[in-house]
Design a protein around this nucleic acid. Sequence first.
DNA 1: ATGAAAGCTCAACTGAGGTTTAGATCAAGC
DNA 2: GCTTGATCTAAACCTCAGTTGAGCTTTCAT
Lengths: 156, 156
Amino acid sequence: MHRTDLIAIGELAARTGVAVSAIRFYEAKGLIAALRTRGGQRRFLRADIRRVSFVLIAQQLGLSLEEIAGELARLPAERTPNAADWARISTALHARIAAQIAALERTQQLLGACIGCGCLSLKKCGLYNREDKAAQRGAGPRYLMGDRSGEIAERA
Amino acid sequence: MHRTDLIAIGELAARTGVAVSAIRFYEAKGLIAALRTRGGQRRFLRADIRRVSFVLIAQQLGLSLEEIAGELARLPAERTPNAADWARISTALHARIAAQIAALERTQQLLGACIGCGCLSLKKCGLYNREDKAAQRGAGPRYLMGDRSGEIAERA
DNA sequence: ATGAAAGCTCAACTGAGGTTTAGATCAAGC
DNA sequence: GCTTGATCTAAACCTCAGTTGAGCTTTCAT
């Protein structure tokens, strides 16, 4: 076959809706791999369209690029992910979302119990004294809360 | 005046579980206010323990510091938030969490429809072609709200 | 063979939510 | 008074998920 089974970065960008700069970034992060022309330009396989699509979907489901890279690493590199691959992954994602929903519902319950009680006491408040830390998120080293069982505020 | 009502930054940190650096950061962001000793050290009111606690709780519910500052600005500065204050805030939080849960449940449904179909086609996939973009926030890092803890740096 | 379009690299920047570091000063116990 | 630990400021640094820009090079259609 001719070289039409390889696509340039701009076409991959157009097909996926992702910016060219983002595709270079994904390559740098090891999410996708590129061949190179003699002149040094990237050329991608058509299967990479689906790989990039998977990145977008998984991102929307809350996975970090690092986690996505982990999933993609278990996928065959040179072919389109098939139904079995996707079933395995989507089942895992399903469980993940279920856990998120459950965490939020627990929060909701605690909040309901708190409305009107004004109980912002660290010692007693169910919202504060939680194990699951429902929505901890974001970048950078976080100070880990809790574990000061000895001497927490009682009186305000 | 041995029995003081004012507490030093280290004590506020210890009582809330927040790092001293974070408390200074919150002060710089206008979330809390500090008095100063003649020597220039910060001294906080005991009510600030609850203000900081509120910051932590609201963060767990997904509010940004800017949003939290907005809520705190409407609270009385010099006293502990009372039941009425908390009722107003927690009602708003309740609606917010309900929306998050609804978004995740829609995602879950779409994912359920996709399991096994291998349909990572951008044209058709309901997971990819969504209007709500479930919990996408801001132009920078994208993260879904909800549990992403797991491997936060644990440093001594 | 040419000229526009697309590609290349590398570095710097964004913004949220902080932490780390350096060097100096303050507060308090003995 | 001395020493020790807590605190001060300011600026630099960190992650994540990219974007932007400068300055060149390659590719492709004519």
